[in-house]
């Protein structure tokens, strides 16, 4: 028993040490040497990560993993997907089991500063809302006093509701679940009065209920939400790569470069486009990537708009407008720093 304890302690110490002593380029080099990105994704959360008819992973987070793999290796399929629950995600990044967790984790100051994690994006802006059974007669958040609320244990939503309710002297009974799908099934069967999530996810779920008209989604948003992939914050070079892959998707959207016109765009004389696509200068190489990494990303996944349309937009079952996630020039919040 003692030796077992010892080895567990030793493992903990080694893990802690390797997390703090990692230096510039250490993680990036390790991933490159492995030749494969290890990406943590949900198992079966619609629009984020699901298996299609052919057994291939599809979803918003899945596409971010593919984009990153394409940037690193020129191959969007050089990803090993590891499925996990929300609760497993951040520990898995800390223990280096995965390089990146694409679990729509909300960006908070606590997670960023205390946990030693780095956030990419936000890749997805939204707001938290409530869906209730129409029979309850509730029409606004103030009506929810004393209601039972289905939440997923350990998520930010959980603590947001508790803050919001206590600040307004309202009470509620949380009904906690380990997994998202379960929560909606129990809500629909009446285990709780209210289910809460980001509004786009509530909309998707309502579409699929037996009687969509029996459920009301409040227009009131009780908290803002901004999600993105999470990586370890110990190798600045690796953090840069992850961050600029996101910006590349946004920038390509701004330029209007997609899978169809990429070959055409490569022949452009526009110096801005040439710099972005790595035709001139060495922006990619300076970051430790192939110089044409943006081209590889676009070939693998398309730009941000393509990813959005495929998973949330009109080409998907969800049919959501871009809303807050539109480009800044179209009145949204998505925006990329200068490419020079």
């Amino acid at each position: 028993m003692r030796t077992l304890l010892k080895s567990i302690l030793a493992a903990g110490v080694i893990a802690a040490a390797s997390a703090t002593t990692a230096t510039a380029g250490a993680i990036l080099d390790e991933i490159k040497e492995r030749g494969k990105l290890r990406c943590g994704i949900y198992q079966n959360v619609p629009a984020l990560a699901t298996l299609d008819d052919q057994g291939r992973w599809q979803g918003f987070d899945v596409d971010y993993c593919r984009a990153l793999a394409a940037a690193l290796f020129g191959d969007g399929d050089a990803v090993e997907f590891v499925t996990m629950t929300f609760a497993q995600g951040m520990p898995a990044v800390k223990s280096r089991e995965v390089d990146m967790a694409g679990l729509a984790i909300t960006y908070t100051i606590g997670r960023d500063s205390e946990l030693g994690l780095d956030f990419v994006g936000p890749t997805l802006y939204s707001g938290h809302g409530f869906m209730v059974h129409k029979r309850t007669g509730a029409t606004k958040i103030a009506d929810l006093n004393g209601a039972s609320v289905c939440v997923v244990a350990g998520t930010v939503t959980d603590s947001l509701i508790s803050d919001y309710f206590s600040a307004r002297n309202l009470t509620y009974t949380p009904v906690a679940f380990e997994n998202t799908n379960q929560r909606y099934e129990y809500y629909e069967n009446g285990r709780c009065d209210v289910v809460t999530s980001e509004i786009p996810f509530l909309g998707t779920r309502r579409l699929r209920m037996k009687n969509p008209d029996d459920h009301v989604i409040f227009e009131e948003v009780f908290a803002k939400s901004h999600m993105g992939p999470v990586i370890l914050e110990s190798d600045p070079q690796w953090s840069n790569v992850a961050r600029w892959v996101h910006y590349a998707l946004i920038q390509a959207d701004e330029f209007g470069i997609n899978q169809e016109n990429i070959d055409e765009m490569l022949k452009t004389e526009d110096p801005e486009l040439q710099r972005f696509l790595g035709v001139t200068e060495t922006l990619g190489e300076k970051m430790g990537l192939p110089n044409d990494f943006t081209v590889n990303i676009i070939r693998a996944t398309g730009n941000y708009d393509d990813i959005w349309e495929r998973n949330f937009g009109m080409k998907s079952a969800v049919k959501l407008p871009r809303g807050l996630n539109a480009l800044a020039k179209d009145g949204g919040l998505q925006w990329a720093p200068n490419w020079r």
Binding site: D53, T83, N181, M209
Partner: peptide, 21 residues
């Protein structure tokens, strides 16, 4: 432990946004 045995793949099938519910 997140392995896709027969029950796991059935769960995966029911999560497709097209067939959700």
């Amino acid at each position: 432990i997140s392995m896709l045995d027969l029950l796991g793949t059935a769960n995966a099938a029911k999560a497709d946004p097209e067939w959700l519910g």
